[in-house]
Simulated scan of single mutants.
Amino acid sequence: MEGNRIQLPKLGLVRFAKSREIEGRILSATVRRNSSGKYFVSVLCNMLYCPYVRVDKTKSVGIDLGLKHFANLSTGETIDNPKYLRKYETKLACW
């Protein structure tokens, strides 16, 4: 890759707009064309480290959606279903 150009087999050097800097060793590139005729290149790279910050697991909460309760949290808290239809059913029938 040179500047804002990428070398593709059978096409040669092709200009492109980068959404982010490419880091590490390039493993593969996938070229796709959407219905409007624009081409998009997805580049897969192998990096030595991951620059993303790990999430503190003590602050994260798991949510399980259910039928009896709207949500059950991993902290043990349950959130009841908001039953708006049953609450306003008679008022809706008058309209």
Rank of each mutant, 00 (worst) to 15 (best):
Y39R: 15
F70L: 15
I79K: 06
R32L: 03
L65V: 13
G37M: 03
L85G: 02
N34P: 02
R15A: 14
V61C: 02
R5G: 00
S28K: 15
D64E: 12
V31P: 05
L48D: 15
F16A: 10
R54W: 02
L44M: 13
R15E: 13
A17W: 10
L73I: 03
I63H: 06
F70M: 14
R33I: 08
Y88A: 04
S60R: 11
L73K: 05
G12W: 08
K18G: 04
S42M: 04
I63R: 07
N81E: 04
D64L: 06
R5V: 01
V43L: 01
V43A: 01
L44E: 14
S42W: 05
D64V: 08
I63C: 06
K57M: 02
C94H: 07
G76K: 06
K68T: 12
K83V: 02
E77P: 00
C45R: 12
S74R: 05
F70R: 02
P82S: 04
V41Q: 06
G24N: 08
K38A: 14
R54L: 12
D56G: 10
C94G: 11
V14A: 05
V55W: 04
Y52E: 15
L73M: 07
L65W: 06
V53D: 03
R86V: 06
E2R: 12
V31S: 06
A29N: 05
W95R: 13
G37C: 03
P9S: 10
L73P: 04
K83P: 01
D80K: 15
G3S: 07
G37Y: 07
S36Y: 12
